[in-house]
């Protein structure tokens, strides 16, 4: 059996996978699906900045972001907190703790500037956010 199984690769390629080909068309349709998913980093940063115009906890943000149809954090809230932390470190978000220890996020002046630029022309948007994404 062992000897025979060594030929499995060849044998499956010639039979099972004979008509299983990853085509250019498929790549193209994947690209389309990706751009339709609308979850580029730009969109997410932009959403967070917009949503924190009124201060929110991470928990609230996660809910609203999901309501917008962005599913990236659905099963991974930790990732949202990592992003928020990064944005806070870079001064795009202010934070505030309430008496009960809940942490609130609110857009800073610096964040507003980035957001304003991102809402301008598409080319500018790219610049503004690449700045934010760096590091």
């Amino acid at each position: 059996m062992e000897e025979r199984l060594k030929k499995l690769r060849k044998s499956m390629k010639e039979t099972t996978f004979r008509n299983v080909n990853f085509t250019e068309d498929q790549q193209e349709s994947i690209r389309k699906a990706i751009s339709k998913s609308g979850e580029s980093d730009e969109m997410i940063y932009s959403a967070i900045l917009q949503l924190t115009t009124i201060e929110k906890t991470g928990y609230d943000l996660a809910k609203v972001i999901l309501a917008r149809g962005i599913k990236r954090f659905e099963d991974n809230e930790g990732l949202l907190y990592t992003l928020l932390h990064g944005m806070e470190q870079k001064g795009y978000l202010h934070i505030r703790w309430d008496e009960e220890g809940a942490k609130y996020y609110r857009i800073s002046d610096k964040g507003r500037k980035v957001l304003a630029r991102s809402e301008g022309k598409a080319t500018k948007k790219k610049l503004a956010f690449s700045e934010l994404l760096e590091g």
Binding site: R4, L5, K7, L8, S11, M12, T15, T16
Partner: peptide
Amino acid sequence: EDQELAEAV
């Protein structure tokens, strides 16, 4: 030789 093995797998 070929198909039989692949099919069995």
